[in-house]
Design a binder for these strands. Structure first.
Lengths: 212, 212
DNA sequence: GTCTATAATCCGATAGAC
DNA sequence: GTCTATCGGATTATAGAC
């Protein structure tokens, strides 16, 4: 488990830059997400954080490459969950029928926050199979899963057309996942549709409103 | 380019089993899709096709590992395109408003056919960046892209609610992509929703019908 | 904490016999 | 077409000086 919120070496005096260990964590996650675990070598990491490439400097901070992978993922999952908590403190919009829109927007924003985690899974799901359920659960717990009860309530109220709620929820999630992955893959939004527009139309499809 | 449809050595006499070269092509694609390019070594391929592991037998059929990757992708793209041609010969269903449903079903079936291509991209998009547009174009040309003109026509006819057609088309595609990738990743349909049900509800969302 | 070596391993690729 | 044997390069990881 992670050392709980980076309790940090408060003993250390002035230290303006982040610690080497912290920089390795950040950099490794970026590199793993971009190139995959095997595609990233220790030398790349050392170079990126300012250690002499080829020196074993890395090993003063982590036991081996798998160690830094697991630590980086734990740190990132904690960061994402913290982001979700922050997001939930925002007041819900007061527009009529905005409940669904709010949920869609939260989902899309959280998926974007999780893009590094998704990229690692996309690259290395077979190399590290145990990561798949671990990250999937963390994603579901952090605003990516659509609340079924809320969806069914909206159908009961007649606010949105009645359809199999679990299928609608899955379609919403999968659309978000596909959109986010494609964005990462091509380096820009699919068909140049930005997140706000994607969310607006996805909401409209679910709500069934006749357009504006 | 590929030798066009496997024109094949018609000189050879009876050869009940597929050639070693053909088996390497199939096996390599499976392994690359599962484990990625770097995660698959020559020994794995040799073993899987019945050559002695560790012998250089592989190199009698391909110059190197990249050679077999490119050949396998070309072969697979040709197979997928052929599958699409076959699919288009099916008579369209005659149910009312079935135009959209037909397109959704074709898209989902073709995405499933392309799952190996998608997996290779997911694993190795940064290692072989030139593959990304190449495969993306092949996918778009083979029934994954939703025909914008048809969608706008349906809106003009009042058959489906008017919304930004390119955004609706993108949502449909991304939902299909997410659904297919998740299926591959977890080894079974997301939330145990099968393709037919996913397609039915996705169609309903786009058509805006009040459910059945 | 960081560096200079260097050990150990793995893997792609080749030469040449059969 | 397939095998034995092996070279050479790349990469993880360690030992020990500074």
């Amino acid at each position: 488990m992670l050392q709980a919120g980076n309790g940090g070496p408060s003993r250390q005096a002035a230290r303006p830059r982040s610690s080497t260990r912290a920089r390795i964590l950040r950099t490794s996650l970026d590199l793993f997400a971009q190139r995959g675990f095997d595609g990233t070598d220790i030398v790349d990491i050392e170079e990126a954080v300012g250690l002499t490439p080829g020196s074993g400097g890395f090993y003063r901070h982590f036991r081996n490459k798998e160690d830094v992978l697991h630590s980086a993922l734990e740190t990132e999952i904690a960061r994402v969950q913290e982001h979700y908590r922050t997001l939930q403190k925002r007041p819900p919009s007061d527009a009529p029928d905005a409940a669904i829109a709010d949920r869609v927007n939260v989902m899309l924003e959280m998926l974007w926050e999780m893009r590094h985690l998704m990229a690692v899974i996309a690259h290395d799901n077979t190399r590290f199979p145990e990561l798949v359920p671990q990250i999937a659960v963390a994603m579901a717990d952090s605003g990516v899963a659509i609340d079924l009860a809320a969806l069914e309530q909206a159908m009961d109220d007649g606010a949105i057309p009645r359809r199999p709620a679990h299928v609608v929820a899955t379609i919403m999630m999968m659309a978000g996942v596909g959109y986010t992955l494609a964005d990462m893959l091509f380096g820009r939004p699919v068909a140049d549709i930005d997140r706000a527009e994607f969310g607006t139309v996805l909401t409209a499809l679910v709500v069934g409103s006749p357009s504006k």
